[in-house]
Design a protein around this nucleic acid. Sequence first.
DNA 1: TGCATTATGTATCGATCATTACATAAAAGG
DNA 2: CCTTTTATGTAATGATCGATACATAATGCA
Lengths: 201, 201
Amino acid sequence: MTAKGRPRAFDRDAALERAMQVFWKKGYESASMADLTAAMEINAPSLYAAFGSKADLFKEAVELYSDKVGKRIKGSLPNAATAKEGIADFLMQTAISHTSPDQPHGCMVVLGALHGNDSSDTPCSLLRERRLDNVTLLRARLERGVREGEIAASVDLQQVAEFYVTVQHGMSITARDGATLEQLTKTARAAMAAWDGLISE
Amino acid sequence: MTAKGRPRAFDRDAALERAMQVFWKKGYESASMADLTAAMEINAPSLYAAFGSKADLFKEAVELYSDKVGKRIKGSLPNAATAKEGIADFLMQTAISHTSPDQPHGCMVVLGALHGNDSSDTPCSLLRERRLDNVTLLRARLERGVREGEIAASVDLQQVAEFYVTVQHGMSITARDGATLEQLTKTARAAMAAWDGLISE
DNA sequence: TGCATTATGTATCGATCATTACATAAAAGG
DNA sequence: CCTTTTATGTAATGATCGATACATAATGCA
């Protein structure tokens, strides 16, 4: 079944990619409709017809970001042989992504919308939930480490997960402030220096 | 010499304090003039006459924040007997401040203006410089630790300073996401677990 | 060839943004 | 008293915000 009416004259995926870049660089609130339509090379009515609203577009942009950028970072966790190696690579991939020269520095999920109101279904709460999901993701990898004998059952896994996610959050700010890959790599390694102390409790 | 014209009908310091609270909670861009004048209980012309502009008011609010909130945190560094204790208290005071129930969670300098343009003399660059100053501050305390024999001269002090500042940055995000004092305290202790590994290089 | 449907471009909507004109009010100095 | 100076409240400025009305263009289907 083909479309009934006049066909869309632009590539929806490419336009969404452009929009993600704008939101990533400027954040939800600072990214104006004028910024978005200019980058997407479409007019406002086309944007609304294809994506619904600015907030809806942002939601799709965040999903694209998770699929495209976040997946490489989060993939470190299940792929590594140990939880320690997984988290080390998790931070290392974060350092690489956050200083990539062809991308805005820092994480879109961390920096994208910090000051929206606290109601649900806002860009702010959407990102907050994504960040909290990351804690759960790290914790799950740590739990696997416990099951596989790498980590003692007495260790406070929530604390460890929150620590490393907090480091990752901080890397977004530091990256925006101009840190290089070398600097963030050292920070990632510094965080891993705490590992032995954290799992020997 | 007293004032010549009609005296100001409001307390400038109290109004600035209110403005700081608004900027702290909402950030520079999300804090509208309507928000500010409502909280300060003055009209826009009074605000402009007393503070110049929204950006100037923000600058003064940041200075007030540094003097009032930041001073307690940064004071940890020179007061402690060792660099290790100083940084540990630095993170601990950060955890306390960032979860204080009568304050917005997280740091105004970290969260206050992330997405302004990169030109100079903007709220965004103003805060970035403040954050970079914090790295210098930690590094200076570490250098003192070297002079006093606490830390070997071969240690990469810049790396250590950047790591702990990055953790502090992350604590602002985590605090905004709802972390408790207990959680942030654990994160601060976790960061200190890396200390021995960092200064034995 | 019409008809229904969807997309596009232009032009604009009311709301809100930071900022300010303007008339008035309250003080000091003459 | 009068003048000068500064502050205040009201109301408005042009600019920009996100979102749309509307006429037109391009498709599938009858």
